[in-house]
């Protein structure tokens, strides 16, 4: 029971990070029908950006308040990563729109390789570690000598995720940008006929996805305190699994899928074997795609001949 409660907390924390990344996948797939392979690496880049800003603010500018520093880091990382997202879409994906279907995918794989190695070359191959940032924990209850703890870090991660998802939800459902985006998702040609700037909308989709990935990256950095240039691939695949599991194209589905994947991973590590936790994630991906490709909340794809 105690272990279960603790793993539930850990799983939800991990799951909110996956959910934030998954939204980037699901939005891009929804709007241009492409698996953005490089999204995991955008997440990794954002974790690096967050780390550098954090060091900059605390050691160079001497901001003593950790809360203020983290808030600034979050905002700056979101801005910078959004610029990355915009640039990548502009250079690597936009010229290929309307090209045959494999081309954007190959281009995205190229971008993923480029980003990982760009970070390796510019920051070095070693993992970067900082001392733990927020260390306080709240002990929820204690039984048989096993304390179930909720750390401040986990509270920050879950609440930031919740706040930003609400804001994002508001953008998608209540603003003209969100309306344009949903219109492009349903029928790009018709949306263009009705005066929506499709290219701009797609650009903004990438920007939004990258900004949410930056939130995930900052939270990842806060949670683990270690970032490395290879950290993009596995979280990227897991987040994609989350997007597929929730039903690709569905935004609540991406968050739901992220939480499920986070929970499965932590419970699997706790009760079965930690070595095979990535195998479990990949197996879920394969099983979901084969047996229920429309996911939990997605609409089934109707094939027209």
């Amino acid at each position: 029971m105690e272990v279960f409660a603790q793993q539930l907390i850990n799983g939800l924390t991990l799951g909110s990070i996956y959910g934030l990344i998954a939204i980037g996948y699901t939005m891009v797939f929804g709007i241009i029908g492409m698996v953005n392979f490089a999204h995991g690496d955008v997440f990794m880049v954002s974790a690096f950006i967050a780390m550098i800003f954090f060091l900059l603010l605390t050691t160079w500018l001497g901001i003593a308040s950790i809360a203020l520093a983290l808030l600034l880091v979050l905002v700056l990382a979101m801005l910078m990563t959004a610029l990355w997202g915009w640039t990548l879409e502009r250079l690597a994906y936009r010229p290929l729109r309307g090209s045959f279907r494999l081309a954007p995918m190959i281009s995205a794989i190229g971008v993923a390789i480029f980003l990982a190695n760009f970070v390796q070359v510019s920051q070095g191959a070693r993992n970067k570690a900082v001392p733990p940032i927020v260390t306080d924990v709240i002990v929820l209850f204690e039984r048989n000598g096993y304390a179930v703890a909720l750390s401040y870090k986990q509270i920050i991660i879950m609440s930031v995720t919740a706040v930003l998802l609400t804001a994002f939800w508001f953008v998608v459902t209540r603003t003209s940008l969100g309306r344009a985006q949903r219109a492009c998702e349903q029928d790009r040609k018709m949306a263009a006929l009705l005066g929506i700037d499709v290219d701009r909308t797609i650009s903004l989709t990438f920007v939004l996805g990258a900004a949410l990935a930056a939130v995930a990256g900052t939270m990842f950095f806060l949670y683990y305190g270690v970032v490395g240039f290879t950290d993009g691939f596995i979280p990227g695949v897991k987040a994609f699994t989350a997007a597929v599991l929730g039903g690709i194209g569905s935004l609540p589905g991406a968050v739901l899928g992220g939480l499920i994947i986070g929970l499965v991973e932590t419970f699997w590590s706790a009760y079965f074997s930690i070595e095979y936790k990535d195998v479990a994630a990949f197996s879920i991906l394969a099983i979901v795609l084969i047996f229920m490709p429309s996911g939990i909340l997605g609409r089934p794809e109707v094939e027209k001949v």
């Binding site: 250079l91 690597a92 010229p95 290929l96 081309a103 954007p104 190959i106 281009s107 794989i109 190229g110 971008v111 993923a112 390789i113 480029f114 980003l115 990982a116 190695n117 760009f118 390796q120 070359v121």
Partner: peptide, 13 residues
């Protein structure tokens, strides 16, 4: 690998 990734994108474009 940096150039390899870049080459993939450039070739596709």
């Amino acid at each position: 690998l940096l150039i390899f990734g870049l080459a993939m994108v450039v070739m596709m474009v």
